[in-house]
Design a binder for these strands. Structure first.
Length: 635
RNA sequence: GCCGGCAUAGCUCAGCUGGUAGAGCAACCGCCUUGUAAGCGGUAGGUCCCCUGUUCGACUCAGGGUGCCGGCACCA
């Protein structure tokens, strides 16, 4: 007797072991058809899985998140199947599920072309249509290794070789194609109906740039056609919000060949920058930071002492003058330490907080550059807190709260928090690391944050909290950070006089909220689709005349707005009002003031909002105070 | 840096197999004095990314470079 408990708590009894598929069939033919896998006692298995003893079972269909992942995983195998049919000497490697789809890495004598992709996708559809059963087989590890060697699949053999010898492994067979896989998979290829190959790209074998490069094919797969169409449509829409496109369209900035990874800020882009910077400056001021400014170029000897010359040389721009070597600063911390070191510090001075809008240059690999998100010249809202070990935790708690307040003010609700823990190559004692990691955890816990821990991702001098925001197509970018550093202050000779009159080395906290002004503005642009909130909009109001009779009044109104601190432009061009409205709408201006004879006569203004709403005429003063209210509220 | 793709007017893009280039928008000049998302007419604008080669002839083909785009690696 086998008793199966279903999710609704009902129990079905069978007189001998049954497969997931049989249980599904016993419930109903519809479910039997929809079944993609089973979840037995919480473990995902194939529908062919034989249940031999009492268990709980949930039938997984394409309505479950797991079902969708299954479809994607099986579609990756389908892709490999099709590739092996069309390109028999291609070698298969791995094909995992990713957000919205999957990829599969192949080794092949030449790169796949877009035409290849179309042919592969066609073949996939044909195989799917044949509804070929997918079956699981359990092999001895060595047999499997031998087998994959014999068919020339050296990557698979290598993967299997890394599995302990006494472990059995599972293979999945569909038609002539057999692949090593933990599974589970859909029962047959006919379950795979909605997929599309998206792009080819190079990817290193085992993610190591010392290894050969494989051909990675990316695809997307869905349970329903509408889902895929919605996804593709979303991608198209996201493309319109790309900060590079909007940067040109809204005349915010540009880049050019002579300065790769460095930005020319146009007046409107710089107005956004200034709005962000002034806001962040107030954040420094109101939270116990003193703003400072350090040299852009510093002598080699300083970078040797800090360790950068040895560890970071490839990323630094260097220069030479009168037989002295200099580096353009890639970071601000050594500079801040010089300020700290000037004079004798007492424990009573700590925590001491310095903040800078520090322009840094890093010679990033050319392939890493991306619009204004990843650049070679950028400005950090970089702060360093010199403190006692006991002050680490409270400083981190305060910082975390502050960072989240800032993100909220900029309109970000979804901030990913990650905690990067001790890497293999590190300095400092285990005890110091324990304390530092725990201090950061404590700060996150105290703030009620949810976070993800990344083993081995910390800096060599200490662990760090990372704050990430997403761009329009969902790529995640680190913005803020909080890092504990036990190392650099000692290395650069910082000390304070402790209570017992001994000299001690302070702990340094490296912290940034927007991270890089450039990246942060890029993300701001994408998240607002270029329609910046009033307080950040480069031009907040445009004042327009209907005919040239209102010209003087337009100037008067604009001047009053300017005097009230509003960023205002006039549009006195000899064009139809509809033409002007269209143009400023495309430029995503928050408010357009339309002044005709009526407004002149009544000494009022008629505003049109960005959403296309026409507000009733009001007195200028009323309009100004409305704007000032919105700006103060950061709307 | 690695794999692949791309580079034509200010912007977005077209230009078949080699015969030195076009459109729309923008700009400029007129006309129109205009009321909530494009009035009309005209003019001007290009080292077809750069260098070398093949060719009678190169935007087009080949080689090299630079930059950008998509990934990978990197991002203390």
């Amino acid at each position: 007797m086998v008793a199966i408990t279903l999710p609704d708590k009902s129990v079905r009894s069978f007189d001998k072991p049954v497969t997931v598929a049989q249980v599904a069939a016993s419930i109903g033919p519809g479910l039997a058809k929809a079944a993609l896998a089973g979840k037995v006692d919480g473990k995902l298995v194939d529908t062919s899985h034989l249940i031999e003893k009492d268990a709980s079972l949930a039938i997984v269909t394409d309505k479950d998140a797991e079902g969708l992942d299954l479809i994607r995983h099986s579609t990756a195998h389908l892709l490999a199947y099709a590739v092996k049919e069309l390109f028999p000497d291609a070698q298969v490697t791995i094909g995992p599920v990713i957000e919205n789809g999957f990829y599969y890495d192949f080794s092949y004598k030449r790169p796949f072309t877009p035409e290849d992709l179309a042919a592969i996708e066609k073949r996939m559809a044909e195989i799917a249509k044949k509804d070929i059963p997918v079956s699981r087989e359990v092999w001895k590890r060595d047999d499997a290794a031998k087998f994959f060697h014999s068919i020339g699949e050296k990557y698979k053999a290598e993967i299997i070789g890394a599995i302990p010898a006494n472990e059995d492994i599972s293979l999945y067979r569909e038609g002539d194609f057999i692949d090593l896989c933990r599974g589970p998979h859909v029962p047959s290829t006919g379950k795979l109906k909605v997929f599309k190959l998206m792009k080819v790209a190079g990817a290193y074998w085992r993610g190591d740039s010392k290894n050969e490069m494989l051909q990675r094919i990316y695809g997307t797969a869905w349970a329903r056609k509408e889902d895929q169409e919605a996804y593709l449509h979303m991608l198209e829409e996201a493309e319109k919000r790309d900060h590079r496109r909007l940067g040109t369209a809204l005349d915010l900035f540009h880049l050019q060949d002579e300065a790769p990874g460095m930005i020319f800020w146009h007046p409107k882009g710089w107005a956004i920058w200034q709005a962000v910077e002034q806001y962040m400056r107030a954040v420094y001021r109101d939270n116990g930071y003193q703003e400072v400014r350090c040299p852009q170029i510093l002598d080699r000897s300083l970078w040797e002492r800090s360790g950068h010359w040895e560890n970071y040389k490839d990323n630094m721009f260097t220069t030479e003058s009168e037989k002295r070597d200099f580096a353009i600063k890639p970071m601000n911390c050594p500079g801040h330490i010089q300020i700290f070191n000037k004079g004798i510090r007492s424990y009573k001075d700590l925590p001491l907080r310095y903040g800078e809008f520090g322009a840094c240059h890093r010679n990033e690999p050319s392939g890493a550059l991306h619009g204004i998100m990843r650049v070679r010249g950028f400005t950090q809202d970089d702060g360093h807190i010199f403190c006692l070990p006991t002050q680490i935790a409270p400083e981190c708690v305060d910082f975390h709260k502050l960072a989240f307040r800032v993100y909220r003010d900029f309109g970000f609700e979804h901030v990913q928090v990650k905690l990067a823990l001790r890497p293999e190559k590190r300095i400092g004692s285990e005890e110091q690391w324990d304390r530092a990691e725990e201090a950061l955890r404590e700060a996150l816990r105290a703030s009620g944050a949810e976070w993800e821990e990344l083993e081995g991702e910390g800096a060599f001098y200490g662990p760090k909290i990372e704050y990430h925001l997403k761009d329009s197509i969902g790529r995640s970018w680190q913005v803020g950070t909080m890092q504990v550093d036990f190392f650099m202050p000692g290395r650069l000779g910082s000390e304070y006089v402790a209570e017992d009159n001994t000299r001690q080395v302070p702990v340094m906290l490296h912290r940034a909220i927007v991270g890089s002004m450039e990246r942060f503005i890029g993300i701001l642009i994408e998240n607002h689709a270029g329609a910046m909130p009033l307080w950040l909009a480069p031009v907040q109001v445009v004042v327009m005349n209907v005919t040239d009779r209102q010209e003087a009044y337009v100037r008067e109104v604009a001047e009053a707005l300017r005097a009230a601190g509003i960023r205002v432009e006039t549009d006195l061009r000899n064009e139809k009002i509809t033409y002007k409205i269209r143009e400023h709408s495309i430029q995503k201006l928050p408010y357009q003031l339309i002044l005709g004879d009526k407004e002149v006569a009544a000494r009022t203004v008629s505003a049109r909002t960005r959403s296309g709403e026409n507000l009733a005429p009001v007195a200028l003063e009323a309009f100004i105070s409305q704007l000032q209210g919105e700006i103060a509220g950061r709307k």
